[in-house]
Amino acid sequence: MIATVVRRLLAAIPTLLAVLTLVFVIVRIVPGDPAAAILGDRATPAAVAALQAKLGLDQPVWAQYVSFLRQYLSGDFGVSMVTNRPILADVAAVLPHTIDLTLAAMLIGTLIGIPAGVSAALHRNGVIDVAARLLSLIGLSFPVFVSGIFLLLAFALHWRIFPVIGNANLADPLDRLTKLVLPAATLGLVMAAYITRVTRSAMLQVLSEDYIRTARAKGVPWRGVVWRHGLRNAGLPVVTVVGLYVGILIGNSVLTEIVFNRPGLGRIIVGALNQRDYTTLQGLMVIYCFLIVVVNLLTDLAYGVIDPRVKQA
């Protein structure tokens, strides 16, 4: 197990390097001068040129790339071009919020999605199946900025159970939990909709397999057939979807963060993109890439738990 983890982490190094290079190129291809964006519309050309020089943007691109690689390989993520704040400090300040939201959404998504998908498959074309499919369609059709506002109107404005501003005090667990409920529900319900559909279709396929019939013929109770033989074998695609979705959630929860006024990695990325804050964008992309590598690794390890043949392979 440890060897697998180490091997996978080592294998991620070329991926990280490729991402670094790609990010470096992409942020420079996008039009828009960071110095001009920072200084605003009253800055003189001399002021813009001076800031470009200070930020190293007057150097040839290859020289910028070399110094960028040297900096990252020495573990220095630098400071934001716009705010002058250390990038890692900004990330450290918001990362717990992102992790809270991602894990809570994943929990809600799997706790609702897997049982709903299994029930739908077991009652194929019945009332439960139709209801599950309909609800999952609704869940997938509503953009989070719409469902989020509806939840705020109901639970913050009408019943006044939760606050609108979701920037929690990390040192206060109750505050943290209270401000997590609505955004996690918003994202979790979308994830549940995905998982319901994937679980349903995987279960339908598995339930028609010979070994299920054999298990039933041997007299294994139906509950055991479903959960031990059925769900376990249908688990691989479900875990894949959960893994992929968690990866997406880490960076793409920006709309939820904006609607619920939560800090998070997504919001930093959007702010950095608008301001052409190259250094922050680069730093966040590396961190994001690293988190994706970790999530993929965990997903792969989960495969081994679900299906021992994967581990042996």
């Binding site: 920072i38 200084l39 605003g40 009253r42 800055a43 003189t44 001399a46 002021a47 001076a50 200070k54």
Partner: peptide
């Protein structure tokens, strides 16, 4: 202009 965005004023 090295230390201000409004040096033009």
């Amino acid at each position: 202009h090295n230390r201000s965005a409004v040096s033009g004023d």
